[in-house]
């Protein structure tokens, strides 16, 4: 999936949040424009990519979808390493999934780069009549904690594209404005930003190809 395309940046993004909030469907909506009513439980970590154009740049988003259940955290948190962006998802109809946001945030900062771009995502706006988390509450929380914020519906395809685009855009802004120090940049972007060379679409690491 896009591994042979040319790209300027690879950004690793993680999807985190409680079990059943719709992480896998946000991912499949973004990468395949699909929604699955009986989307299976995610066991461990799953992974998808999508390459998008951001102004004149081509960005490959490498998105890791993680299991929400507590017991898997010891495994999934290892995958936060090297992530430059995160979507922290809760279900607007289940207040408990919102209450655990703080815990998730701590978990993320414990394992990921401190400059990671985080967006708080309230999913399932299609179930508006069952809403139990007011938009304002979540918005305030996001502002206080320096997070981006958006409400989405993976089912109705509302704001999903925008959510990912905003996160990727913000990562790019941080990287290019050198808001992050040199040391972090290499930690931040998976491969250091290499300009696309004409006639050389291959930007893979040839060092360890098996010959």
């Amino acid at each position: 999936m896009g591994s042979d395309e040319a790209y300027n940046f690879v950004f690793k993004v993680v999807l985190i949040g409680e079990s059943g909030v719709g992480k896998s469907n946000l991912l499949s909506r973004f990468t395949k424009n699909e929604f699955n009513h009986d989307s299976r439980t995610t066991i461990g970590v799953e992974f998808s990519t999508r390459t998008i154009q951001l102004k004149s740049l081509i960005i490959k988003a490498q998105i890791w979808d993680t299991a929400g259940l507590e017991r898997y955290r010891a495994i999934t948190s290892a995958y936060y390493r090297g992530a430059v962006g995160a979507l922290l998802v809760y279900d607007i109809t289940k207040h408990l999934t919102y209450e655990s946001v703080e815990r998730w945030l701590k978990e993320l900062y414990d394992h990921a780069d401190p400059h990671i771009v985080v967006m708080l995502v309230g999913n399932k706006t299609d179930l508006g009549s069952e809403r139990s988390v007011p938009t304002e509450d979540a918005k305030d929380f996001a502002e206080k904690n320096g997070l981006l914020f958006l409400e989405t519906s993976a089912l109705e395809s509302t704001n999903v594209e925008t959510a990912f685009q905003n996160v990727l855009g913000e990562i790019h802004r941080k990287v290019s404005s050198k808001e992050v120090t040199r040391g972090s940049i290499s930690a931040v972007s998976l491969s250091s930003p290499v300009p696309r060379a004409a006639g050389d679409p291959e930007e893979k690491k040839p060092c360890c190809r098996n010959l």
């Binding site: 591994s3 970590v45 992974f47 998808s48 893979k204 690491k205 060092c207």
Partner: peptide
């Protein structure tokens, strides 16, 4: 596997 890019994400994706 051996023909895949020798990269964690790529090999994980292929095998999973």
């Amino acid at each position: 596997v051996k023909q895949t890019e020798c990269d964690m994400a790529m090999v994980h994706q292929l095998l999973s």
